[in-house]
Simulated scan of single mutants.
Amino acid sequence: MADLVAWVVELDDEHHEVVFERSEARARVRGARKEGASARDVKARREPRLDAHTPGPVPAQALLDIGWHFECARCYHYVDGDGCQRCADNAEEEAGHEVEWVPPVTRGQDVWCSEACHSADARERAARQLITSAARAEVHQVLPGAQVETVFVNDGTAVVWLRVPGCRGTVRYHWPAGTFRVQLRDHATLLAALRRPALETWESEGGAVHD
């Protein structure tokens, strides 16, 4: 039986995937399946330079080395093996003269424009994680029986989407404001779960706001 080798599946002009398979036909089927497409609608070509990374995934640096480009994981600039054109242009504009390109930074399958961009992204991720943890902890304190579905963090605040026993719709908790948004039909159920009197129904009172 043939060994797995690297194929680049061309799903469209901009979207390519690397898959490891034994034949072109199997590569097209596997690549198309990942995108819910038909194998007849995609192309596959061999890429021997990536065979060493079987069975995958392929590190971003290896793809940069053969001419691929990525979006920066923080600022979404296009980054190739030389670096980021937009960052270089901005640096030259600030300096008033030509500057050397800053090399990109890779970690696994992620790419950043520079070490500065990578460090800033790490700080922002850590801050979002702290907010997420704080919001989750507060929800579990005020509603121990609730199930957290998703936490959205933005500009130092968080919205926690909850499933509360007895409520037919999703309940939203706004942190750090400490307010809830709930469908009208679930208003009384949420108040009962919170063990709050009916007076606390206004956002100004720290209670629930119904949609």
Rank of each mutant, 00 (worst) to 15 (best):
Q147A: 10
V111E: 07
A137D: 08
L143C: 05
G96A: 09
D121K: 10
E149H: 11
D121A: 13
T106W: 01
C113Q: 05
V102W: 00
P104I: 06
V151L: 05
S133R: 15
L143W: 00
H97C: 03
V111A: 07
E138Y: 11
V99L: 03
V153L: 05
Q129D: 13
V148D: 09
R123G: 06
V111S: 05
E124S: 06
S114W: 05
R136Q: 08
V111T: 05
S133I: 10
E115V: 07
V102D: 06
V142D: 02
E124R: 10
R136P: 01
A135D: 02
N154Y: 14
L143M: 01
A120P: 00
A116P: 00
V111W: 02
P144T: 06
C117V: 06
G145E: 13
A137H: 10
L130G: 03
T132H: 13
D155I: 07
E124H: 09
V153Y: 12
V99E: 08
T132V: 04
S133Y: 07
F152P: 02
A134T: 07
D110A: 12
R136S: 07
C113S: 03
R123K: 11
A126S: 12
Q141L: 12
E124G: 01
D155K: 15
D155T: 10
V111D: 08
A134W: 12
E100I: 04
C117E: 04
E124Y: 13
E138T: 06
A146L: 00
Q109A: 13
S119V: 05
E100T: 14
E115P: 00
V142H: 00
R128S: 09
G108Y: 01
H118N: 10
F152C: 04
L130C: 04
E124L: 14
I131V: 15
Q147T: 09
E115G: 04
A126Q: 10
A126N: 08
D155C: 08
G145M: 02
P103L: 09
S114T: 11
A126D: 05
R123M: 10
N154F: 14
F152Q: 08
S119D: 11
P103A: 14
E98S: 11
P103H: 10
G108E: 04
S119E: 09
V142N: 03
S114G: 03
A137T: 09
T132F: 10
N154E: 15
P104D: 09
F152S: 03
R125S: 07
C117R: 04
A134I: 08
S119T: 11
N154I: 11
T106Y: 02
W101I: 14
A120N: 00
G108H: 04
Q147W: 01
H118Q: 14
V99A: 09
Q109D: 11
R107C: 12
T150G: 03
P144D: 15
V102G: 03
D110L: 14
N154A: 14
W112L: 01
T150R: 15
L143G: 00
R107H: 12
V148S: 08
T132R: 14
